[in-house]
Amino acid sequence: ITFYEDRAFQGRSYETTTDCPNLQPYFSRCNSIRVESGCWMLYERPNYQGQQYLLRRGEYPDYQQWMGLSDSIRSC
């Protein structure tokens, strides 16, 4: 899974293949995501807390595409 700070896969990015309890050191906001394979559970707060979103393989050019309430993703 790759997270992008800006919409349409622009700006600083961070890629991971494992669970991350705290994504804050890698980016300040998340406006687009690419899921290369599988399913990922994302959380608005660190340590798997807050609103959660299940994303399947695909491209999400805007946080509203995954029904996000904000551009805050802090763990996965």
Rank of each mutant, 00 (worst) to 15 (best):
T2G: 03
R74K: 10
R34V: 09
S72C: 07
I73Q: 01
Q65T: 06
Q51C: 04
C39N: 05
I73L: 12
F9T: 02
M67D: 06
E15C: 06
G58Y: 11
Y63L: 06
W40F: 15
D6V: 04
S28T: 11
D19L: 13
D6K: 14
Y26G: 13
D62N: 08
F3A: 00
M41C: 09
Y4K: 00
I73K: 01
G58H: 02
N47Q: 04
S13P: 10
S70I: 14
F27A: 15
V35R: 00
D62M: 09
L42Y: 01
Q10N: 06
Y43T: 03
R74M: 11
P21V: 10
E44F: 02
G58A: 03
P61C: 07
F27Y: 02
G68E: 08
T18W: 12
T17A: 10
I73M: 15
R45K: 14
Y26T: 04
Q24W: 13
M41G: 08
E5A: 09
F27M: 14
E59Y: 11
R7C: 11
R7W: 07
R29Q: 05
S32L: 00
F3K: 00
Y63C: 08
G68M: 11
T2A: 03
Y60F: 04
Q64P: 10
Q10R: 07
Y48H: 13
E15I: 14
S72A: 05
S72N: 12
F9A: 05
C30S: 12
Y26A: 14
R56P: 05
N22G: 04
L69I: 03
E5Y: 05
Q49N: 08
S28Q: 08
N47S: 05
G68V: 11
V35F: 01
W66K: 10
T16P: 02
R29H: 15
T17V: 10
R56I: 07
R57H: 11
Y14H: 05
G68Q: 10
Y48P: 02
D6C: 14
T2L: 04
M41K: 08
G11Q: 02
C20E: 09
C76W: 02
L55S: 01
L42H: 00
S72F: 15
R45V: 04
Y53P: 00
S28R: 08
Y48I: 01
Q24V: 11
C20F: 03
F9C: 15
V35A: 02
L55I: 13
S37F: 12
T18S: 13
I1L: 02
Q64G: 08
P21D: 15
R7L: 09
R57Q: 13
L23N: 01
N22Y: 14
E59G: 12
W40P: 00
T17K: 05
C20V: 05
E44T: 03
S37E: 05
L54I: 05
G11A: 07
W40S: 02
Y63V: 06
R45A: 09
T2Y: 14
P25M: 11
Q64R: 08
E44V: 05
T17W: 06
Y53G: 05
D71W: 10
Q64K: 08
S70Y: 13
F27W: 04
E44R: 11
R29K: 10
Q10Y: 06
S72P: 09
Y53W: 14
R57T: 15
L54T: 03
C30R: 01
W40I: 11
Y43S: 14
Y53I: 15
R12Q: 12
Q51F: 11
Q52V: 07
S37V: 14
E15V: 07
Y48F: 02
E44A: 09
L23I: 08
M41W: 13
D62K: 08
Y63R: 08
D62V: 10
G11H: 02
E5S: 08
L54R: 06
T17Q: 13
Q24S: 11
L54G: 07
Q24I: 08
I33R: 00
L55R: 01
G68C: 15
P21A: 09
E44I: 10
E59A: 07
Q52Y: 03
S75V: 03
T2I: 14
G50P: 01
W66N: 14
L23T: 07
P21F: 04
D19I: 10
E15L: 08
C20Y: 07
Q10F: 07
N22S: 11
S70W: 13
L55Y: 09
Q64A: 07
F9W: 09
D6Q: 14
S70G: 10
L54P: 06
M41F: 15
E59F: 09
T18I: 09
Y63G: 09
Y63F: 12
E36T: 15
S75F: 00
L23Q: 00
T2E: 02
E5N: 04
S32T: 00
Y48W: 10
E5V: 06
Q49E: 15
Y14F: 15
R74I: 12
S13L: 04
P61G: 09
Q64L: 07
Q52W: 05
Y26Q: 07
E5M: 14
Q49L: 12
R74S: 13
S70V: 14
D19G: 06
L54V: 12
M41Y: 12
N31S: 10
G50H: 01
G58N: 12
G58L: 01
R34E: 02
P61E: 06
T2V: 13
G11E: 03
E5I: 15
A8E: 15
F3I: 02
V35D: 01
Q65H: 07
Y26M: 14
S75A: 08
C76I: 14
Q52E: 12
D71E: 12
I73A: 13
Y26R: 09
D71T: 08
P61H: 03
F3R: 00
W40Y: 04
N22H: 04
F27P: 00
E36N: 11
G38P: 06
Y43F: 04
R56G: 04
C76P: 00
L54D: 05
Y14W: 15
I33W: 01
W66L: 07
Y48A: 03
G68R: 14
L23G: 01
Q51M: 06
Q65I: 05
C39G: 14
E44W: 02
T17F: 04
Q52T: 06
I33K: 01
P25G: 12
L69V: 12
F3M: 07
T2F: 15
Q10A: 14
P61K: 11
I33G: 00
N22M: 05
S75G: 07
T17Y: 05
Y43A: 04
S70H: 04
V35S: 02
Y43H: 13
D71I: 06
S28P: 06
C20D: 15
T18M: 10
Q52M: 06
N47R: 09
M67T: 10
R57D: 14
M41P: 00
N47K: 12
Q65F: 03
R45F: 12
P25H: 03
E44L: 10
D71F: 05
G11I: 00
Q49F: 03
N47G: 14
G50I: 01
Q52L: 10
N22K: 14
E5R: 12
T2H: 02
E15D: 07
T17G: 11
F27V: 07
R29C: 14
S37R: 11
D62H: 06
N47C: 04
S70K: 06
R57I: 08
Q65D: 10
M41R: 10
Q49K: 08
L54K: 13
L42W: 00
W66R: 09
T17L: 06
Q10D: 11
E59N: 04
I73T: 13
E59C: 15
R56D: 06
F9G: 05
Y48S: 03
L55Q: 02
P25V: 13
Q52P: 14
R45Q: 05
C76F: 02
P21T: 11
Y43C: 15
R7M: 02
